[in-house]
Design a protein around this nucleic acid. Structure first.
Length: 262
DNA sequence: CTCTATGTTTAATT
DNA sequence: GAATTAAACATAGA
């Protein structure tokens, strides 16, 4: 459940379930996922706190509590927050459960994450992973001159820059792959070889891809044009899509209509 | 059995 | 030193 649009949907759910509620009980024991790693310390920081708001930057969630505390949550590859009945049996991959009370009504939410790449951080101040995030395309918007200067200041491939969370917060492998196809830019192009027109194309492509994700949320993968479709015809020029590895991530592209900038 | 996976960090290699 | 690549983390599914 990992790219920005999915995380935003989780944020809205959490906001609805938790805002204004008091945390009356916490169950959590996974020293790999929790920070601080001590489950007792982690639990004690949360119990008794009231949820003021649920925020998001990129792929990070921040459940804002009273007393200046925050519960930061990254979903990794397979993390998700769900609501369940208070007496529900633990899910096999459940790693945290919060019981909340609001106007006498009880709500239970739980964090489920089969691969356990996610993190839950209970902290009295904003964590570094949060503060060093770059611009969030959904909440802060994008503009071409800013992206152009960001691209020009780096010497990595354009795809790696798009996925750099300190530049753009929330862009993952799917959105980066799709947006570069829409913008007709070869993902291997060095970012400092892109000009203002390329930046403008990319801004539009990113916005279109993200809006398409919002529109088709929960509709499976039919929404994607080239991600995971290597070997199949390019939807634009019908030539077979190629598969490469870039920055350690699988990338689909059309070597015919995505032009490499030099 | 092998390969791959929406993420991120760290170690190793070039 | 910089840049690229591999490995690591855990688990499920094709």
């Amino acid at each position: 459940v990992p790219e920005l649009v999915d995380v935003e949907i989780v944020r809205r759910n959490l906001q609805r379930w938790m805002r204004g509620a008091r945390i009356v009980a916490v169950t959590a024991a996974d020293r790999y996922i929790l920070r601080p790693a001590s489950p007792a310390t982690f639990r004690h920081r949360l119990v008794g706190r009231t949820v003021r708001n649920v925020g998001r930057r990129g792929k990070w969630l921040r459940i804002e509590l009273d007393a200046g505390l925050g519960l930061f949550s990254h979903l990794g590859m397979t993390g998700d927050w769900l609501t369940c009945k208070t007496d529900a049996e633990p899910d096999p991959h459940e790693h945290a459960r919060l019981e909340l009370s609001r106007h006498g009504a009880t709500t239970t939410v739980r964090y489920v994450d089969p691969r356990r790449f996610g993190r839950l951080v209970a902290s009295g101040e904003d964590i570094e992973e949060w503060t060093r995030l770059g611009r969030d395309p959904l909440t802060e918007g994008l503009d071409a001159p800013w992206l152009a200067s960001s691209l020009a200041s780096m010497r990595r491939s354009v795809k790696e820059v798009l996925m750099d969370q300190t530049v753009l917060a929330g862009i993952g492998n799917i959105v980066a792959t799709e947006a570069l196809w829409r913008a007709r830019i070869d993902p291997r192009s060095r970012s400092d070889a892109l000009g203002p027109a390329d930046a403008q194309s990319l801004v539009r492509a990113l916005q279109a891809t993200i809006q398409n994700e919002i529109r088709h949320k929960g509709e499976g993968e039919g929404r994607l044009r080239i991600y995971g479709r290597a070997g199949q015809p390019c939807p634009r020029c019908t030539r077979a899509l190629t598969r490469i590895t870039l920055g350690g991530r699988t990338t689909a592209l059309c070597t015919h209509c995505q032009v490499r900038r030099r």
